[in-house]
């Protein structure tokens, strides 16, 4: 989907700094409905910070984030409302350790969205079924593996019926054999047409799931291209250098 019909999220001239250090400089990006954007870049390039800005976890200094006829870069945004439509999944799962799986998933739907328990529970169970974890619904997070926890965290975000999902290095803390089960869930979402922004270091996954690759370095977007083009002939030297790091045969 290189030319989406409907623009869901539009970011213009986004600037963010921690003290004197600029971490995001003039970020421009349009995200179409149903589009999967994969953000790549070296550590510290600002890709995670960028996602966090979209969910109001980091205040920004300048620029605009258009979403649902609001500007999320303004200080007076009601992020409680926005976060019900933009779900986020974190690197370290961040399930609530004192709640069972089902309690984790239902907290938002029941307390924030005030939905009926029956209806929310039905949806939660359907989602759990889909990620193959329905039988663990009464388990506590400590009784689950990393991959299971991350799948639950995805279900927790999905159960809010978000319009956009943000994935912040969701496989970075997982053992290699568990990476796949999590990526398959995300791939399934992509097939269903979920709009997603994904920060990852899994190059193969980026290539197969992404509609567009956004390559960032030192707080700026260096290039935006299709996965095919990015992985075969990136247009910037920095991107080429970045890709070389993942090619062990060039050592």
């Amino acid at each position: 989907m290189t030319h989406p019909e409907e623009i869901l999220l539009e970011i213009e001239g986004l600037e963010k700094s921690f003290g004197d250090r600029k971490v995001l400089e003039g970020i421009n990006l349009q995200v179409g409905k149903g589009e999967v954007i994969v953000i790549l870049g070296p550590s510290g390039c600002g890709k995670s910070t960028f996602l966090r800005c979209l969910n109001g976890l980091e205040p920004v200094q300048a620029g605009r984030i258009h979403y649902r006829s609001q500007d999320l870069a303004k200080p007076d945004v009601d992020f409680r409302e926005v976060r019900q439509h933009i779900g986020m999944v974190f690197q370290n799962y961040e399930l609530f350790p004192h709640m069972t799986v089902i309690e984790n998933i239902l907290l938002g739907p029941l307390k924030v969205q005030k939905r009926s328990r029956d209806e929310a529970q039905r949806q939660a169970e359907q989602l759990l079924e889909r990620v193959g974890l329905l039988d663990r619904k009464d388990a506590y997070p400590r009784q689950l593996s990393g991959g299971q926890k991350q799948r639950i965290a995805i279900v927790r975000a999905l159960c809010m019926n978000p319009e956009i999902m943000l994935f912040d290095e969701v496989t970075a803390s997982l053992d290699p054999e568990m990476v796949r089960e999590v990526l398959e869930v995300i791939l399934g979402l992509a097939k269903q047409g979920m709009t997603m922004l994904i920060v990852t270091h899994e190059m193969g996954f980026a290539r197969s799931v992404g509609d567009r690759i956004v390559f960032m370095d030192q707080g700026k977007i260096c290039e935006i291209s299709s996965p095919e083009q990015f992985f075969t002939s990136p247009s910037t030297e920095r991107a080429q250098h970045f890709l070389d790091i993942f090619q062990y045969d060039k050592l």
Partner: peptide
């Protein structure tokens, strides 16, 4: 801090965050 962000990300208010996420864990 990340537990708090996780609670925020599902839209909890400050009071809900204290009641459902922070205090039960703090108490334990």
């Amino acid at each position: 801090r990340t537990q708090i962000e996780s609670g925020l990300s599902i839209g909890l208010s400050k009071v809900q965050l204290a009641r459902y996420v922070i205090l039960p864990q703090a108490f334990a």
